[in-house]
């Protein structure tokens, strides 16, 4: 190697003449099949790399879930206690104080199913907004498809929901609802909602990576969304009793959060029947899931090389 010492400062340091000139360097690099580092992989390559990291995604989600309550005295018991406390608060306010339950049969199962299913979507979105900004260290230190992070965080929420559903089953027994074949409908409903949530987490991760302010705004958006999604009241009941224009009602019914919540109620709550659902509800659920998961994934991938920079 050649040695070249530049004149000491403060004289303008001449760019050291490299041993090889620019075109020569490029020629060497290309001749030996070197590739430009940090370029965005094509979509198929990206999907393949993501798939090869599936164990990391799973381990990351579980690790986050376990780490969450590891310093609490009651430990993992909080996984079940937190959603139950949440449901209790909503029950006191909406069931007892505002007495929504006189209009809805089986109000407690109705409400708790709504709260748990909504929490899954809401938490996935919140986690998605922090997927990149909250893991900058990881993004800046290691190579992996960045989509692993929002996906892992949404899966963490799914695991959390599994605990909640365990608690829900116990509550349903207490209110005289016993497992029927209908409960199996919960599986496709949950699968579609998971796809939808993952897509939304990916979208939010990209938006919040560019504009961190979104994370501050999200709680307000989410609260509004929750109130229009029929978590603690019945959209069907509104349809029967109110004089709202048809378009507004249709919009309320097509809201993806409402669709997934009501499908879960259809599966688990006996008095909640299919006639309370809008027509083509499964098509709607599938459409939202595909739109968000495919669209969200592509949207996230398009900015892959920019995450964690600047």
């Amino acid at each position: 190697m050649t040695t070249h010492t530049a004149a000491p400062a403060p004289a303008p340091v001449a760019t050291p003449t490299p041993a090889l000139s620019g075109p020569e360097l490029r020629a060497i690099a290309l001749r030996h099949g070197l590739t430009v580092s940090g370029a965005r992989p094509s979509l198929p390559v990206y999907v393949r790399r993501l798939w090869s990291r599936r164990h990391f995604i799973g381990a990351f989600a579980t690790a986050r879930l376990t780490a969450q309550y590891s310093q609490a005295r009651l430990g993992q018991l909080w996984q079940v206690a937190t959603p139950l406390l949440n449901a209790a608060v909503y029950y006191v306010i909406f069931g007892v104080l505002m007495n929504v339950q006189r209009d809805i049969p089986d109000y407690v199962p109705f409400l708790i199913t709504g709260v748990f299913v909504w929490t899954f979507t809401a938490q996935s979105i919140t986690a998605g907004t922090r997927a990149i900004s909250g893991n900058l260290g990881l993004v800046r230190a290691l190579h992996f498809p960045r989509a692993s992070l929002p996906i892992a965080l949404a899966l963490q929420q799914l695991q959390q929901l599994a605990f909640s559903l365990g608690a829900l089953a116990v509550i349903l027994f207490c209110f005289g609802e016993f497992p029927t074949w209908n409960w199996l409908l919960a599986v496709p409903a949950l699968a579609l909602q998971t796809l939808f949530n993952i897509g939304l987490a990916l979208v939010m991760a990209r938006i919040a990576a560019g504009t961190p302010d979104v994370a501050t705004l999200m709680p307000f958006v989410l609260r509004t969304w929750m109130y229009v999604s029929g978590v603690m009241w019945s959209i069907h009941h509104l349809e029967v009793t109110s004089r709202l224009p048809h378009a507004v009602l249709t919009l309320l019914q097509c809201n993806p959060a409402a669709v997934y919540i009501d499908l879960m109620r259809l599966a688990l709550v006996e008095s909640f029947t299919a006639d309370q659902l809008p027509p083509h509800v499964w098509t709607l659920a599938l459409g939202w899931a595909l739109l968000l998961s495919v669209g969200g994934f592509i949207y996230f991938w398009q900015a892959e090389e920019t995450y964690g920079r600047g």
Binding site: T35, S37, G38, E305
Partner: peptide, 28 residues
């Protein structure tokens, strides 16, 4: 970090064989 492909170059290019890795597992 530029060699590792974790920071983009604003001008010029970095060509690498395979994927250089930073010894930085701490963050995970």
């Amino acid at each position: 970090k530029g060699i590792a492909g974790l920071l983009p170059t604003s001008e010029g290019r970095i060509y690498t064989q395979g994927r250089p890795s930073l010894l930085g597992v701490n963050a995970a």
